[in-house]
């Protein structure tokens, strides 16, 4: 009696139950022919396809191409965002020069720039990386800038009263104080970079996850499309996990993390 009771209780709290039920329903629908394979492949088929693509090397090689695009785009975008945020946050002249441009840039949806980028950079790798870079500048810039401006002036005062030079004040007080904001910006930038990767790879890709999806669409291989969607999701999770790990290391002084 009490055993069945405790099982019902733990089942009623199991968050994995409803996704699993959906998955089983999907599988049953596919097997019974209610969901045709050309509409959506069965979960079991998807797993089988995933395994084949991994073994054949098709998925790893294309994933590598996509990951390269994201990392290069992020590297350019994030470092530009950090430089612009520092200049704008730390000096008045920098703010006057840079901030209006960044605010104008913010109002233009980056995706809408795709045609222009194709005209400028062709249909090779450059426009794809440029799109990712361009989209990730702003979240990094804005968060670093507001982080620097939000640093507690009383702490800066205290540092000044102990005779720290302006450079030392920035190094010991302003930058560590702005770091939490910068990491928030980085997290935004990472999730945006995955979205932009999907969009950018629709531009005539000859390799990469987008290329796989486009090919699969032409042959109505819904199983391959679902595999690629899974990979995109995993990429997003990995990116978020990376920033979380970075935060846990860099912000270990924060009380929420200290208590754990």
């Amino acid at each position: 009696m009490s055993l069945s009771k405790s099982i019902t209780r733990s089942l009623s709290r199991a968050r994995w139950l409803s996704p699993l039920a959906l998955l089983l329903l999907w599988e049953a629908g596919s097997r019974s022919g209610i969901i045709p394979a050309r509409t959506l492949a069965a979960p079991s088929t998807v797993i089988e396809t995933l395994w084949q693509m991994v073994v054949s090397g098709e998925l790893p090689s294309n994933l590598l191409v996509s990951a390269g695009r994201v990392l290069l785009g992020l590297a350019i975008g994030v470092s530009s965002g950090i430089i612009l945020g520092l200049v704008s946050g730390l000096s008045r002249q920098g703010e006057v020069a840079i901030d209006p441009l960044m605010q104008i840039k913010r109002t233009i949806p980056v995706v809408a720039l795709t045609p222009l980028f194709i005209v400028w950079f062709g249909i090779g790798e450059v426009p794809k990386i440029a799109l990712i870079a361009f989209a990730t500048v702003f979240p990094v810039y804005l968060n670093l800038y507001s982080g620097i401006r939000g640093v507690d002036v009383r702490l800066v005062d205290a540092a000044r009263s102990f005779g720290l030079s302006r450079l030392e004040q920035i190094w010991h007080v302003v930058l560590p104080g702005a770091l939490p904001s910068l990491l928030v910006g980085l997290r935004y930038a990472l999730s945006i970079s995955i979205i932009l990767l999907v969009i950018a790879e629709q531009i005539n890709a000859s390799a990469g996850l987008g290329y796989l999806i486009n090919n699969a669409r032409d042959f109505m291989r819904t199983d391959i499309i679902v595999v690629c969607l899974l990979v995109y999701a995993v990429l997003g999770l990995l990116a978020d996990g990376a920033v979380r790990a970075l935060e846990a290391g860099a912000l270990s002084w924060r009380p929420a993390l200290v208590e754990q």
């Binding site: 009383r154 702490l155 005062d157 205290a158 540092a159 009263s161 102990f162 010991h172 007080v173 560590p176 104080g177 770091l179 912000l251 002084w253 924060r254």
Partner: peptide
Amino acid sequence: AVVFQDARLLPWK
């Protein structure tokens, strides 16, 4: 040297 009302320690050090 100054001691402020709020100790003004840098929380990240």
